[in-house]
């Protein structure tokens, strides 16, 4: 309840100044925070991957390697230098585009730049995530809003119960069940999404259907529940009641008074769930053998390719954080209060 006295007028002059570039200020602040976070994440990743003294060179060569061979490999991989030096070297490399060489490459007997290996796969992952996001946003908004408008009735129950069920399932379960249905039983779609390197995944759409559906599953369910909750809350706000008391048409009340205010929190939620796609993509790509960044990461972890894990993980984290900022920016643009305060 606002009880600011009329005796003190709000600082008009302050408002004018801040109104100049509040959005730019916000973006700058968030970017700075993001860079700081990324730096900390890079340190954590570096430390995390090198926690055990158990040695990357040994893992690459396998159990039968002689100590001499391991020493040689270590020198080759640059593991004989002290940790801080290696960290800075890696970080510097990342910033200049040189992600180092993969251990798989070393095992095969030569240098194999990581960037070359993954550049194609980045696009593939983008395609998968992009299509999923493009489908998720309108679907979750539509279903969430409809469920809220019909709250308590049959349609809402149906949507709520099915989303509660799906949201509990891990991606690989959803994916496996989908494969069982569409491949084993119906024989409509391929169970794996192997595509030749450097081919455009969009040129073979049926390869994408199941992975997209799998990724869509849990994130869509989560988004629907939250959009619904936000809309229900907006519909029960005092200003919505007031709009009805003013005799406004129901359509106007729902769109201009409820939806308009439910949109910002919904966008935030959707953005968060898009971030979760980044996490879910790893399992999905592995399940369908889809040649993307996620599968690359899993393969690298399996052979303990430290350098590759570090670089790929950092890339994915950067993308994740970038999405975060984009979402916050969108919310600030949508909510006037945040623009004029702070």
């Amino acid at each position: 309840m606002s009880s600011t006295s009329d005796l003190a007028t709000p600082g008009l002059h302050l408002l004018r100044e801040r109104r100049e570039h509040p959005v730019l200020l916000f973006v700058a602040r968030r970017l700075a925070a993001a860079i700081a976070t990324l730096l900390i994440v890079s340190i954590l990743v570096f430390v995390g991957t090198e926690v055990l003294p158990g040695d990357a060179a040994g893992a690459v060569l396998g159990r039968n390697a002689t100590p001499a061979q391991v020493e040689e490999m270590r020198a080759l991989m640059g593991l004989d230098r002290p940790a801080p030096e290696r960290y800075l070297d890696w970080l510097g490399g990342v910033l200049t585009g040189d992600l180092g060489n993969s251990a798989a490459g070393f095992a095969a007997g030569g240098e194999s730049p990581i960037w070359d290996e993954i550049s194609g796969k980045i696009a593939n992952s983008f395609a998968l995530a992009g299509i999923t996001a493009a489908l998720m946003i309108p679907l979750s908004l539509l279903l969430g809003i409809v469920a809220a408008l019909r709250a308590g009735r049959a349609l809402d129950h149906a949507i709520s119960i099915s989303s509660l069920a799906i949201i509990s399932l891990p991606e690989f379960i959803i994916g496996s069940l989908l494969i069982l249905v569409f491949f084993s039983w119906l024989d409509l779609l391929p169970p794996v999404s192997l595509i030749a390197p450097d081919t455009n995944p969009l040129s073979q759409p049926d390869v994408l259907v199941l992975p997209v559906l799998t990724l869509l599953g849990a994130s869509l369910a989560a988004s629907i529940r939250m959009v619904r909750a936000g809309m229900v809350e907006a519909l029960s706000a005092e200003y919505v009641t007031m709009a009805r008391l003013n005799g406004f048409r129901e359509r106007m009340v729902v769109t201009r008074y409820a939806l308009r205010n439910a949109l910002a929190p919904s966008v935030q939620v959707l953005a968060q769930n898009i971030q979760y796609l980044v996490g879910g993509i790893v399992v999905t790509e592995y399940l369908f053998n889809y040649p993307g960044l996620g599968k690359e990461l899993v393969d690298a972890v399996a052979i303990r390719d430290v350098r590759e894990v570090q670089s790929v993980a950092l890339l994915i984290a950067a993308f994740y954080i970038g999405l975060n900022i984009a979402a916050d920016l969108l919310v600030v643009l949508l909510v006037p209060k945040l623009r004029t305060q702070r």
């Binding site: 309840m1 606002s2 706000a237 005092e238 200003y239 009641t241 007031m242 709009a243 008391l245 003013n246 201009r256 008074y257 308009r260 205010n261 909510v335 006037p336 209060k337």
Partner: peptide, 13 residues
């Protein structure tokens, strides 16, 4: 109608 809490009764957006 005029409500008790104008802060809550006016559409913030």
């Amino acid at each position: 109608y005029v409500a008790q809490d104008p802060g809550a009764a006016l559409n913030p957006s």
